[in-house]
Nucleic acid binder design. Sequence first.
DNA 1: GCCAACGTTGGC
DNA 2: GCCAACGTTGGC
Length: 156
Amino acid sequence: MERAYWLMKSEPDEASIDTLAQSVSQRLPWTGVRNYQARNFMRDAMRIGDGVLFYHSSCPQPGIAGLAEVASTAYPDTTQFDPASPYFDPRSDPAAPRWLHVDVRFVRKTRLLGLAEMRATHSLSDLQVLQRGNRLSITPVTPAQWQAVLAVLDAG
DNA sequence: GCCAACGTTGGC
DNA sequence: GCCAACGTTGGC
């Protein structure tokens, strides 16, 4: 299967591109996804080696902050069973975990490609994350969109 | 299956 | 803090 591409949102207060870069293995479990569509992308469509645009959300400067790579297939998210976790889900059955996640590996930081610039750039205008009403924390990116993002990053 | 109420996301 | 948009829940 050929390499696919994704945009994954993270709140930098929780996990930023620097968190990923500075983690021991430069690799983090993408825990906390509690949306079925986003979960299904990880479970059904992601493959090891897929490219990831690391996006900072809910922060002063939202935008793409770096590149990463899918580093595992999907496996159960342990935070769903931890009552102390904000991601605790009392309705999830340990025998059939509801929530899964992949691991993500650091590739490199980029300049911050801010949301306003993304919106102002024609070649990026069809990115799913920019579409009206989109709230998904994980969205697919086409090979053409991936190339366009890299080109815009280089141009800046 | 419908749909109103409620919760969450996330930019501004 | 506001609010648009969308997802989830649960009564019926």
